[in-house]
Structure formats: structure tokens, C-alpha cells
């Protein structure tokens, strides 16, 4: 076994390296910021504009690091700590996913469940941060974000259960990928395709993109949940969003479309999903929160239940 060659200290160093540099924090942040640029550029092209240069998001982050940090009255510690928790868990997801792609057999059983939990924490950290700022608009945003989580989590988990059923009950991202390498991607079956569409809608909501961006609607509630943040904490939130923008499409690729996981295939698939997300973002109006909940608990849940039944019949 390869594992036997490493001593405990070396293994720890390797984990630390994985977490901080590749495929964890540094790598995912760079890719995420570049995909943030793809988002802005495609948006600009859709609106017939030119758009910013590719390094724009890096400059924004550096600039935010140099700004004053204003802490409003209220609970200062939660206000400053909550962005950190969001970032740490997003990086953890990126690390687990990246490792599952690099060496599919080395994961642990149940890491898909851990990933599901960790993916909620950035949203929760936004809610906690917004509430602790004691701003009324931030509270409106936070309450919308909460309802949004309630709305999309149910269909998202059902879509993932479809994948678990289809890959013979494997609870490990690595073995789900392996299953698809051997037996073809889940996307090519009817139930997998339905679940994939549902999961795409859910990550659109997870990323807080239009049509589900009512929690930070710039026009109505001035940036909503992030309204009181400035300087470093705001930069951390922006980084968290960038890392999620890298992680979530990658998660979908690993769950639904992992029949071919060479580097170029991955990049192509990732860019395709990203552009689809951005195009959906640019061609839709913002929905109200009640419409969103009806949408996710109504048609979307029905579709994913049909997918579940199809999957149980082996389609």
C-alpha cells in the first residue's frame, strides 16, 4: 500500500498542504476568483459591454484588505468571527472534493454527507453575521436567506439521494466517481438527468444568484446580509462566495457527470456549467421569497420525486 510509506507526521503535513495550498484554500480561491471574472465577463457580454480585465476580482480583494474595518454596535465577536467560519468550511469542502478527484479511493465513507453539512455553513455564517450587525435591512436579508435554505435543501438532498441509489448505495464521493467511470455517467439516464436539472437550480440558489438572490437584492435592501460589512470581513465573504462558485459546479460534476475526469475534460465541463449558471442568472428576473419557496417545494420537489421513483425502478 502507498499509505504505509508515510509516517504520521508526514501524513499530517500532507493534510495541511492539501488544506492550505492544493486543492484547498489557495487553489480554490484562485480558481474561484477567476470564475468570478468569467461571471462578470459573460454578464458584460450579454449586456453588450466589454467587462473588466481578468485580474479584477484579485484587485478587489487586495483593495478590501487595505480598507478600514467598521464594526457596528451589537455583538462584535460574532460579527467578526462568522465570515471566518464560512470560509473555513467552504475550504474544507473544496479540499474533500479535490482529493476525491485526485485519488478517488482515499476518501472516507460518508464524506458526501459531511460535504452536505459543510455546504450549509457558509449560508448560516452569513445569517449569523447579518443578525449580529443589528441592521434592519440586514435582518430582512438574513430572514430571506433562512427561508431560502429551507426552500432549496429538501430538493437538493433528494437529488443527491437519487445519485446514491443509482451508484449502488455508495456513500463516498470517490466511489460515486469510480462507479460512473465504470458504468457511464448518471447524467445519461432519465432519472439522473432530472435530478441534475434540480440540482442545478439548487446551486443557483446556494450561490445567491438571480433569480434567487433576494437575500442580497441590491436594489431593494442595499446588499442585504452584507450591508454592514467593510474591509477584511467583506473580503472574506467575497472569497467564500468565490470558493463556492468553484466548489458547487465541481460537486455536480463529481455526482452526475464523472465518466471522464481528465484535467481537460474537467475544465471543459466546469466552464460549461459555469456559463450555463451565468446565463440563467442574466436572463431571469428576481423572484420574491414566497414565490421561491412555492417553486422549490412545488414543481421542483415533484420533479425530483419522479426522479427518485425512476431511480428505484433502475431507470
Amino acid at each position: 500500500m502507498v499509505k504505509g510509506r508515510f509516517t504520521a507526521a508526514e501524513k499530517e503535513m500532507k493534510l495541511l498542504f492539501n488544506y492550505i495550498i492544493f486543492p484547498g484554500f489557495l487553489f480554490s480561491a484562485v480558481i474561484g476568483l477567476i470564475s468570478g471574472w468569467v461571471d462578470r465577463k459573460v454578464t458584460a457580454r450579454v449586456q453588450w459591454r466589454v467587462g473588466p480585465p481578468w485580474y479584477q476580482n484579485f484587485i478587489d480583494i487586495i483593495k478590501l484588505l487595505g480598507k478600514e474595518i467598521i464594526v457596528p454596535q451589537g455583538s462584535k465577536i460574532t460579527f467578526l468571527l462568522s465570515p471566518l467560519f464560512g470560509l473555513l468550511s467552504a475550504v474544507l469542502v473544496a479540499t474533500i472534493l479535490g482529493n476525491a478527484f485526485i485519488s478517488p479511493l482515499e476518501g472516507f465513507i460518508g464524506d458526501i454527507i459531511v460535504v452536505l453539512y459543510l455546504l450549509v455553513i457558509p449560508a448560516i455564517s452569513i445569517i449569523i453575521g447579518a443578525f449580529s450587525s443589528r441592521n434592519c435591512l440586514a435582518s430582512v436579508g438574513a430572514s430571506r436567506e433562512m427561508k431560502l435554505i429551507l426552500a432549496y435543501e429538501l430538493p437538493f438532498i433528494l437529488a443527491i439521494i437519487v445519485v446514491l441509489i443509482k451508484s449502488a448505495g455508495a456513500l463516498q464521493i470517490g466511489s460515486i466517481i469510480n462507479y460512473q467511470i465504470n458504468f457511464g455517467s448518471h447524467l445519461s439516464s432519465p432519472s439522473g438527468a432530472l435530478a441534475f436539472i434540480v440540482a442545478m437550480l439548487c446551486i443557483q440558489a446556494k450561490l445567491d444568484f438571480v433569480p434567487f438572490d433576494m437575500s442580497e437584492a441590491e436594489q431593494e435592501i442595499m446588499g442585504g446580509t452584507l450591508i454592514e460589512y467593510s474591509g477584511l470581513p467583506l473580503a472574506i465573504f467575497k472569497l467564500t462566495k468565490a470558493i463556492l462558485l468553484y466548489t458547487l459546479p465541481l460537486l455536480l460534476i463529481s455526482l452526475f457527470w464523472a465518466n471522464e475526469i481528465g484535467v481537460w475534460a474537467l475544465i471543459g465541463k466546469y466552464i460549461l456549467l459555469l456559463v450555463i449558471i451565468v446565463l440563467v442568472k442574466n436572463t431571469n428576473p428576481r423572484m420574491r421569497i414566497d414565490q421561491t419557496i412555492k417553486f422549490f417545494w412545488g414543481p421542483v420537489t415533484v420533479v425530483v420525486t419522479i426522479a427518485l421513483i425512476l431511480a428505484l425502478f433502475g431507470l
Partner: peptide, 17 residues
């Protein structure tokens, strides 16, 4: 299109330069 130079409108004075 001033976004070419990185200029964007933001909704909150806390984010502003």
C-alpha cells in the same frame, strides 16, 4: 462601460470607496 476600469455601483456606504 466604466466596469472596464473596475468601477461598480454598490448598494451600501460600507462597501464604498
Amino acid at each position: 462601460d466604466v466596469e472596464r476600469f473596475g468601477i461598480v455601483l454598490v448598494g451600501s456606504a460600507r462597501h464604498a470607496d
